[in-house]
Design a binder for these strands. Structure first.
Length: 431
RNA sequence: UCCUCAGUAGCUCAAUGGUAGAGCAUCCGGCUGUUAACCGGAGGGUUGCUGGUUCGAGUCCAGCCUGAGGAGCCA
């Protein structure tokens, strides 16, 4: 009897198959059991009638607890009454291990309770759908860059100091005498690998010790960061647009059952087509004021500002040329207007905020050295970074895209904590 | 770090300052098409902690602890 995965059950219609999984839920009607089985690939209803399996097998299922490991054998068939459209007519049931008093019932639970049991929570249907969308996003990103000719060149996780002086870093003891910091961006290293390999990307975990306590923040999150030699701000914006369009299309194509399980409004995602509107920071300020937001020129946008701004468009919007003072030291100033930097933020629709941030880098040695000093950064630590401007400096740029925020947007989630198997937050380090 | 809100049965939540309750889960029983199944029964409580006000505190007051949402900062 072939072993079947639930996601492929349609291919086995009419056949006898073996499903190896866990009991997700059970309903019973005296002489008929409905066992909802999950096997990691999906969920399916297995129907067991007393008349066809006999008393002994039927009784085995009588008191079986949620999340008991079971192997069911039976015929796969289409049935409109079954959730998912297919069910298994059980011929035999094998109990691999019996579970009792599983703590997560099909009823509602609070956030703290579920997060304390995240190792079990991920078995639920909703988390199953979200994590599969995440998987698709990650693969879509990798496929995109590989197809476009980018070289994966990962940046180190241990770094000697801040990439951008402003954000707080996690220090770690590095052997006896040294302190290392967990990376908050691979970007500076990307600039080096881009000048070596042309177009590169890194993709890994990133750490921010900010005491942020909002639905958009994790202390450990995944970021993909492409960097291109011989590239301008316009090239960076084109790349970000193409990437986001590609990822959304891929998820819409490959993960529709999951998006539907999450009750996502697909029509909003289908609108994500190029070109994305590109507006300047100045323009954004004007639009925000027109919408009644009290904003001053020179400041960064708050969460509400981003929501209001993205609400003005039906697709992601790119805001470029921010005041140089609020941006990182390595941002290139606009030659025509030095008070603004050639940076860009891409805001997701529906209030999901900034999912991409990047721009053109400062390629001039003298100006960069000046900036390093002005930001009170130790020039010795940045010696190697300055070297990139001494030998073969060219216009270059790139961006970072936060995976969890993209997944939260695509899934329509309230909080990024559900987009990663084990979220790390201000007050959450376990399990 | 700051602001707001919350903490009562295993879970989700009720309870005018006056006998601490329901649904789900668990256990027992019933039911051959359930859809978070349903119906009947049972067990289950140091009301986050410490102190105060009161004849009497889950309820009012103070402090603390834990969590959630938000601000700042960011992807």
């Amino acid at each position: 009897m072939p072993i079947a995965y639930i996601q492929d059950i349609a291919k086995h219609e009419g056949q006898d198959v073996t499903i190896r999984g866990w009991l997700h839920n059970r309903r019973s009607s005296g002489k008929i059991h409905f066992l909802v089985v999950r096997d990691g690939t999906g969920f399916i209803q297995a129907v067991m009638s007393k008349a066809s399996v006999g008393d002994e097998t039927f009784q085995k299922a009588d008191h079986l607890g949620q999340e008991s490991a079971i192997i069911v054998r039976g015929q796969a068939r289409a049935d409109a009454r079954a959730p998912g459209g297919y069910e298994i007519e059980v011929g035999d049931l094998q109990v691999v291990s019996e579970a009792r008093d599983y703590p997560i019932s099909p009823k509602e639970h609070g956030v703290e309770y579920l997060l304390d049991r995240r190792h079990l929570w991920i078995r639920s249907q909703r988390q199953h759908a979200i994590l599969r969308v995440r998987h698709e996003v990650v693969n879509a990103v990798r496929d995109f860059f590989n197809r476009e000719g980018f070289v994966l060149a990962d940046a180190p996780i241990f770094t000697p100091s801040a990439c951008e002086g402003t954000t707080t870093l996690f220090p770690v003891q590095y052997f006896e005498d040294d302190t290392a910091y967990l990376t908050q961006s691979g970007q500076l290293y990307n600039e080096a690998t881009a000048l070596a390999l042309g177009r590169v990307y890194c993709f890994g975990p990133t750490f921010r010790a900010e005491k942020s306590k909002t639905r958009r923040h994790l202390t450990e999150f995944w970021m993909v960061e492409p960097e291109m030699a011989y590239a301008t701000l316009d090239d960076v914006m084109r790349l970000a647009e193409k990437l986001v369009v590609s990822v959304v299309a891929r998820v819409l194509e490959a993960r529709q059952p999951e998006l539907r399980a999450l009750e996502r409004d697909l029509s909003r995602l289908e609108l994500v087509q190029a070109p994305f509107p590109r507006i300047t920071y100045d323009d954004a300020i004007e639009r925000l004021r027109a919408a009644g937001q009290p904003v001053e020129w020179g400041g960064d946008f708050g969460g509400t500002d981003e929501t209001v701004l993205s609400g003005l468009f039906d697709r992601p919007v790119m805001v470029h040329r921010f005041p140089a003072a609020v941006k990182a030291f390595y941002m290139k100033p606009d030659p025509e207007r030095p008070e603004v930097a050639l940076g860009v933020d891409l805001l997701a629709p529906e209030g999901y905020g900034e999912i991409v941030g990047g721009g053109e880098r400062l390629a001039d040695y003298d100006l960069l050295l000046e900036r390093v000093k002005a930001h009170d950064l130790p020039p010795s630590t940045f010696e190697w970074y300055l070297d990139l401007r001494r030998w073969g400096s060219v216009p270059h740029g790139g961006f970072g895209m936060g995976i969890e925020r993209v997944v939260a947007w695509l899934c329509g989630l309230e909080h990024v904590r559900e987009t990663i198997p084990f979220p790390r937050m201000l007050y959450r380090l376990a399990p």
